[in-house]
Nucleic acid binder design. Sequence first.
DNA 1: AATTAGCACTCGGGGAGTAAGAGTGCTAAC
DNA 2: GTTAGCACTCTTACTCCCCGAGTGCTAATT
Lengths: 350, 350
Amino acid sequence: MDDRKLKILAAVVDEYVRTGEPVGSKAISQLEHINVSAATIRNDMAALEQLGYLEQPHTSAGRVPTFQGYRLYIDELMTPPSLTDEEKERLDDMLGDSDTPEELLVQNAAAALTELTQCAAVVTNAVPRFSVISKVEVIPTGKRLYVILLITSSGSIKNKACRLEFDLSHEQLEFFTRYIEENLNGVSVDELSEEMFDKMVAAVSAYMVSLSPLVKGICELSEDLRQQELTLSGGEKLLSCDDLDKMEVVRFIEHKDDLSSMLEETFSGIQVKFGQESGTFAIGNSSLIVSKYRKSGREAGSLGVIGPMRVDYKKIIPYVDYLTQRISYLMSGGEENIPPAADTDSAPPD
Amino acid sequence: MDDRKLKILAAVVDEYVRTGEPVGSKAISQLEHINVSAATIRNDMAALEQLGYLEQPHTSAGRVPTFQGYRLYIDELMTPPSLTDEEKERLDDMLGDSDTPEELLVQNAAAALTELTQCAAVVTNAVPRFSVISKVEVIPTGKRLYVILLITSSGSIKNKACRLEFDLSHEQLEFFTRYIEENLNGVSVDELSEEMFDKMVAAVSAYMVSLSPLVKGICELSEDLRQQELTLSGGEKLLSCDDLDKMEVVRFIEHKDDLSSMLEETFSGIQVKFGQESGTFAIGNSSLIVSKYRKSGREAGSLGVIGPMRVDYKKIIPYVDYLTQRISYLMSGGEENIPPAADTDSAPPD
DNA sequence: AATTAGCACTCGGGGAGTAAGAGTGCTAAC
DNA sequence: GTTAGCACTCTTACTCCCCGAGTGCTAATT
């Protein structure tokens, strides 16, 4: 596998990403950093096609990268430039600071990615799962009406109204609150199970039957917390890129929840997945650039960009990379180390 | 304006709604309830075109209603059938009962409309505005961290985390809670103003400066309550109808908040508005079928359907109509009168 | 006077044919 | 090993043409 061939492959990808047209030997030969003739390039391109890195839409058209071609390009050939300080500042502004609630942080990241890349962005937030219940309150708010308040160590707050069959006396309420507090305080949201609540229902029912709706309410709130939140933003951007099948995009947007599993299958570090590589449902010619952020060392969610395979990886990857690092940093209260004038992960070209 | 011409106009609209193709004189003449020849219909259709109710996409095609045509059809010609009891039951099931929280009620209505009409549905809920503050709680949840809980008489619950500069002693907290309670309990959300909070900030600051973030937090929560909530559901349905410009739809979904003003300009009773009639931004060939529901006699929000101009008004109008009535009824605790076997608003045909 | 039948006309859609252009693969020369 | 040249292929865009649907008009009919 020739050095020149790799250079040509990279050039083809770059050109194709830039123009969107199949790229021919002549176009490549005219690039500054290429000093061989079109004929030579033709030979090499034929070889690259043999190897499965390029393909021709039809005989007399230029070449287009196959997804193996993109794969090689992304993994080996491409050298994404590091962000300038201005770009970083811009991202920081869009993201928020350490006072920004975590939930908003990831939402902002999605919005930023959508705007900067003109692609769809997807974020998940599994943080509440890893946190522990730090407070449960039951507040009477009317005739037989109570509000349950559930707060986690990560700052998620959920509330729910709950109607009982009888009013609770002050003692009953206190009993209940103490009981719940003893059983739930400090328990990780992840550990909360149906059985636990069943047991608790049984326990409080022994004291007073009509308390069980409250336990059920708490159970439902904890379910809310446990399921990781997935947000797709800017899905409509996908409609305007004509590499993607409109019908597939619409189906995708409607079933965005299926993304969860795709995002779960992700290792740490930045990753690129193509639609056709994914067993689960995905858009045909799409590519997903995704990375997981961490909170205090623990994987806490992912953020990614979904676009056509023909996206500007050089541009997007640094964005995703920086945002994950930054979110990890902010969520960990500054513990997670982030290179201050961060090189992303690659040596400079040449 | 001939009686027959009106009949023909109605037939054209019906056929066009049914088939989506421009409709010709022959197709009309073959309808059962039309007993004149195609030639006669041609003459009438030419007249209707003159009057601005029909138009031809091109010379040798059938006719399509103009939006004036639709307007006349909807206002004068159409006779939507009343719902059957099964349909009403179905809607009742989807909507919920008197125990369903009001917020959920309108969400359910939106979901039902989306499903039944295969169009987008939009609902607003201004109820919280009309309710009064029934409870304010401040709950310490961590180091200098407090959660504010705001509950209204209509059952809306809002919470917000708030970080202070110092921890509050038990007495300080009690003072604050009592002060807020005295000043806000029973106050209508609508009456809450910036100035009121400014005054309160001044008052609590006199006692302890670092309390003011709490007041500000409450102020922000009240703003949340005050602004009417607008939900667009099933927006993606609009993408699959090819009468509508995809780009416009996308822009519309992104800026759905602009709908607020469109919905505000609405009188009581059911109404149909067309995209091109609306000064504010709207989708080109779209039509909005909207009606306001009331809570105890007061306008409390609207619900509507957005689709292409070519929608089945006969089907949709009764749905929207019934749902508004039903919501009004449920929200008013059964006071608002609803015709038990409700005729919608029109005499049966013929 | 209103309605209808008949007929010429118009216009858009779809298929066939064609010319242009872009890019290739191959061969022979460097 | 590289390059120039050339014949070949294939797509795209364009034109021409026909077909059919639907009209508008006129003349005949009720």
